[in-house]
Design a protein around this nucleic acid. Sequence first.
DNA 1: ACATACGTGTGGGAA
DNA 2: TTCCCACGCGTATGT
Lengths: 233, 233
Amino acid sequence: MKIIIANLSANYNGRGLTELPPGKRMLMIKADGTVLIMNDKGFRPINYMTTITQTKEEKRDGETHLLFSNKKEKLEIILHEVFKEETINIDTDDPPIKREQTENELQSYISDNLDKFDTNFKFISREYETGFGPVDILAIDRSTNSTLAIEVKRNATINSVYQVLRYKDSLSSQFNNVEAILIALSYNDTALELAKEREVRCITVSKNWSDSIDDSKSDKEASDSLTLFDLTS
Amino acid sequence: MKIIIANLSANYNGRGLTELPPGKRMLMIKADGTVLIMNDKGFRPINYMTTITQTKEEKRDGETHLLFSNKKEKLEIILHEVFKEETINIDTDDPPIKREQTENELQSYISDNLDKFDTNFKFISREYETGFGPVDILAIDRSTNSTLAIEVKRNATINSVYQVLRYKDSLSSQFNNVEAILIALSYNDTALELAKEREVRCITVSKNWSDSIDDSKSDKEASDSLTLFDLTS
DNA sequence: ACATACGTGTGGGAA
DNA sequence: TTCCCACGCGTATGT
């Protein structure tokens, strides 16, 4: 990784079009060719470019012009004055990060434990294809004999409501009594409002749902002690 | 900005849950408190945290533990071995980037030039409020006397189609003959398919739409030489 | 503080 | 390759 501290300006043209006036910033060039212009605040680089296939370097009037490009994009960086230049060695293949409690895991958990949310729920299928894309979970409610279109979210928004309603619409041409259900860790107020209005049932998963995976050996205790759901509506 | 090259590991708990095994990486601490752990490839930091309100530093067994937190999140970084530490001064308030040809500009352009897309289109209002949020442009078609719900996108996807259809639904309770229209620089195939099926008219804006802003002084030439739209449906 | 919408969103998986 | 969806999306703006 190479780091250059410089007064620089930049022009990007590709997915968008931006112009960066001169200023003292950090230019970072990574081992894989990724170029980043960083300032002293926030998460995002000001300008950047990945998957670079071509690099050109020119001197013009004592200033260095760097031209990075690929088939679709172009990034030009002009170094007006370089204050520092440095090469840093770090592992190119460091061990990867482990992500836990992703939506995918949450989906698995819910699929495997549908009866804990409602004893009448019976799991049918995951990623069941509808005319509007796959619904996360397809199930039936044995008490009402209705088909359940279940969408799982970490945080449900109004878009989640629209999404599950589309699945319901589509499935209604194949099944009788289709019901739309959201199961989420949290809900926007606006999402709850809309859900109520459109009769989408909202079920909240306890924040510590993943604990019950670790505790699953002692089933009895787990099902007694954990409040795995609340009904909101 | 402070930079530390170290063999480090990290644990994050907040919006998600991640675990980063030890490895040689760069730790960057910005002037606003933002913390980033960078590796030698790609755009994204491996771990990071913004809007930090509390920082704790401890030594345990000769290793430095850094604890960053705010009300909702926690990031712990353990420095197993520090290879380099360095402070870099860059402008905290460098001039901001200028973005051009944004969706907002595109909307303005389309609003001001609706007649170029269809001579019967007449602009009424921007950001017109519907029951499902504001529609980008409200207009009328003088030839059919229908109300037009126009949604502008750089790239239209199936979600754009659903979105404009919701606006149409909502507006249909106020107006007769509401028509849903998408105006975009590009379209997904699936979006076009769905749009056709649901009778959403799709209009494509020429990639060089912004040229006509610069050329606007010579109106005649511009309107003669530029193909500003295609009809797809 | 919360919600909404844009962004060069990025990244991953499937068709 | 394209398309779709989740993401600790980040970031700005309006309320």
